[in-house]
Design a protein around this nucleic acid. Structure first.
Lengths: 166, 166
DNA sequence: TTTTCAATCGAATGTAGTTCGGTTATATTT
DNA sequence: AAATATAACCGAACTACATTCGATTGAAAA
């Protein structure tokens, strides 16, 4: 039985192998990673192809999962979140780590990773102010199995973006 | 003299005060932060307004800088970058810190902040593999004025997104 | 009260996304 | 080598969405 298109698409998306990308693909990806509102006409000028040709490539890049989607970038300060902090949390048990994963639901939490090294969990938090950060910290510190929490409060941000195709 | 529209727009964008947002604005922002490709027709169903009304609001949110832009989210693994690492670099001089800021140009670097606390600079790096991460680390460690570099290699990522309007 | 302003709507318009058929070039098969 | 299949591309047509417009409403200011 020949696999249906749907099946092969599913396999393609799951694959963690790097997709084969030529220089034109990379230019398109770079342009869209910078500004996803660019029109196909605009992209076609950048890569010297017709608009439908660019459209085909973007469609393929989405189908293969290289482009995972497009999102609006919001200004944290304008939303009332002025305090960016990275928390490095050392846990003594897996159950404690699991409890920390639940914090992914919080609106203030932007990233949550488990890491190798001294700590176990790394959380990027954008809080409204020091008070709300303190509340957040207290909540984490009071969890059973949390050994230590180190806070790194961002002073200035010089770069914040997603993966680059270059 | 009455300030021109251009001037007031410029002031509005620079302002770090939180913009006044009602619940409809927040719903729109949330929907677009999740998927910026949603049409005004789709958004209008979510917030129970007409498409032009939503259009006006989005235009205002962009003008005020609450929406900073829209970007395509790329899959780091598909691009051949499988290794996500956070570096916490302790420097002994401002000139060393300045040298580190130049690393914002690197394709592997996704975030670069100065932080208060033990370290001075926090860098989020997405490298192709351990070898290229090692090259990167070596380069930083060999900089004059770099006291220490702590590496936190991500094992699993449970959340990665921008500021939320909620 | 009267006026002004901002937010909204339906309808019309314009622009950009998308599909289509045909062409070329390359790779595969016979 | 010839024939066939495949993939990438193009211009032109089509479609759908973004955008503009004028009118209406309701609330705040004069």
């Amino acid at each position: 039985m020949v696999p249906s298109d749907k099946e092969t698409d599913a396999i393609r998306q799951i694959k963690h192998h790097p997709a084969e990308l030529d220089s034109i693909d990379r230019k398109i990806l770079g342009a869209l990673a910078e500004d996803a509102s660019r029109s196909y006409a605009e992209l076609s000028k950048i890569v010297h192809l017709s608009a439908p040709a660019v459209h085909d490539r973007v469609k393929r890049l989405k189908r293969d999962g290289v482009i995972k989607g497009t999102v609006a970038i919001l200004d944290g300060c304008k939303l009332g979140r002025t305090l960016l902090t990275f928390l490095l949390i050392d846990t003594s048990s897996y159950s404690a780590t699991r409890k920390l994963l639940a914090f992914a639901d919080r609106a203030e939490v932007e990233e949550l990773h488990t890491v190798a090294g001294d700590g176990c969990v790394l959380i990027k938090v954008r809080a409204a102010n020091t008070e709300s950060l303190e509340d957040f910290l207290m909540e984490i510190q009071s969890l059973e199995g949390v050994r230590s929490v180190r806070s790194y409060i961002a002073l200035s941000t010089f770069l914040e973006r997603g993966p680059s195709p270059d």
